[in-house]
Design a protein around this nucleic acid. Structure first.
Lengths: 310, 310
DNA sequence: TGAGGGCATAAGCTGGTCTTATGAGTGAGA
DNA sequence: TCTCACTCATAAGACCAGCTTATGCCCTCA
């Protein structure tokens, strides 16, 4: 009813997402049914009884208004709709698993064996996935996670408060050894309605420098890279202090923005933002794993490092 | 930095995700707190009382073992850990929103205004996002979704059972007009441990044709494109009937596979799979919107179409 | 034709989460 | 400096969703 300005949620359906989307346990159950082909077997796998599973699946079907499984005395198979729903469910469960991996690392920070320090972008968008993979290979490794800018990461490593660090940016902090583990590109994005969204001819550096942009504040890693690429000339239309705020502003059509491609992957896929081709400017930046000079990563740190490289 | 409270070390590692990840309502509440800066205001927004919100956030902190918000008599702000957790929560909620958008379309199939027919890959990986965007722009549009192969899509459109279709592949089915709305590339992937994973020199078509691959069954869209590109020479190591199964097989290291880049985006980001460079073969395929010749999309179909183009 | 696996239904219990009612701390303005 | 308006925390009771146990029916296979 009451209009929330700016970032709108799903206000219209009157009921929140949580009431329209089955809970995680139900989604996991559905995945188990899909995999095992039987309600009872799925029930056993997730540790509940068969009637509970039957009822849960039934109520999920009632909630969605769609039949998900064909039950037969020989087992249960997904319907066509069930296949689609299961795929969407899988993505929710994967996001939840990433959440869990991150949260677990955060929780075990104190008494853990592997302490990771990472810049915000990496901590948010890449690390949970890596930790998930690490956990799959070495379930007994307790990982902790600290987030901060490059200087903070360096400080933690040099002070012995972290075992392995990840930074993005142009230079490697003093006292650290590094290896490039990937790349991130800053890309120019606009809302689909903006004139640049339809542009096929690349934007030139001069044009970019001459256009007011929605940017992170001066001093942020993203901004540093952009300023360096343009020779310190970026003109801010608005300056905001979080990536999320910049994204929201760009989506709402306030103007073009420059952001990490990691940060806008979802928005691009959903066509909430469009990438604008740019020419003659290197907005690529290296993602590096770092450690104190001479202290080559060993044990779990080494495992994590090798996971992050192809 | 982030603080941790109430440490309990109990090694219940084998509990399911659902027990370790707060439910969707709690995650939405957390996002509201982050946005509004107050437990009470967030409670109001999600339609519960302030004590309920307080208790929910507290139990979430207990569950995660990490303090998420700094409470003060003037409001509540996220801790550093809270910022990270909120970002991961946002991704879960977004996945849930995509689930909801898809499910909603499926449910309204019968009595809807806009009936969309799409191939599996598009229906699974792209459409939920588009529907989300469409719903944001036109909340009153009821959308239904049917999935099938190209022939099925054509049949639905020509029979008047769908208003707009989406297909991937080489040719446009007879009787339909089409416009290219994007591209999908088949890419060669392997588990990180495979020799090809470290390859810098591109794989040649001959080499690819000579190597047994994990593939979808003959007749699937993916397989058709690959066979066409290689001149019908692809050698299967295993043939599986679902993209998910092929992915699982590739991840487990059984061998190289060829899959849509849309389908393996997550796996690449998590480094569970690695893309192998290929040379001299065009594995790109167009994604097209289609409609019966002469029946240009109008109304909601037109809106959806324009959303899918940059 | 009986055994076994598969699913559905019924009844009762439990636990989590909501509500209302209240208290206590802080800051701003009269 | 008193009071109002705002914040969050706590307590006690109500309620409901979902679990378990105990059945029964259906089908297939030996």
């Amino acid at each position: 009813m009451s209009e929330t300005e700016g970032s709108r949620e799903q206000g219209e359906g009157t009921e929140s997402l949580a009431h329209r989307v089955p809970d995680l346990a139900a989604l996991e159950l559905l995945l188990a049914v899909a995999r095992l082909g039987s309600l009872g077997a799925a029930a056993r796998e997730v540790g509940i009884t068969q009637p509970a599973a039957s009822s849960r699946v039934r109520s999920m079907e009632r909630q969605l208004g769609v039949a998900l499984v064909d039950r037969s005395p020989r087992g249960s198979r997904l319907t066509d709709a069930g296949v689609l729903v299961t795929d969407w469910a899988r993505r929710v469960v994967e996001a939840a698993a990433a959440f869990d991996a991150g949260a677990r690392a955060l929780r075990d920070r104190r008494d853990s064996r592997l302490r990771v320090a990472a810049s915000m972008t990496i901590a948010e968008y890449l690390l949970p996935g890596w930790l998930l993979a690490l956990h799959a290979e070495r379930p007994d490794t307790a990982v902790s996670l600290l987030a901060g800018n490059s200087a903070k990461v360096a400080e933690l490593l040099l002070g012995g408060d972290a075992d392995l660090g990840f930074v993005e940016g142009l230079a490697v902090p003093k006292g650290l050894d590094a290896v490039v583990i990937g790349h991130d590109r800053l890309i120019v994005v606009t809302a689909p309605g903006h004139p640049w969204a339809r542009r096929r001819r690349p934007v030139s550096p001069k044009e970019l420098a001459g256009t007011p942009l929605i940017l992170r504040e001066r001093g942020s890693g993203t901004r540093q890279v952009l300023d360096a690429a343009l020779g310190g000339l970026a003109r801010p239309l608005i300056e905001l202090s979080s990536t999320t705020a910049v994204k929201a502003s760009a989506v709402s059509g306030a103007g073009p923005s420059v952001l990490s491609e990691l940060a806008v992957r979802e928005e691009l896929a959903l066509r909430r933002l469009v990438a604008v081709p740019v020419d003659g400017v290197s907005l690529r930046r290296d993602l590096r794993a770092v450690w104190p000079t001479g202290h080559r990563p060993t044990g779990p740190a080494r495992d994590l490092l090798s996971l992050t490289r192809a």
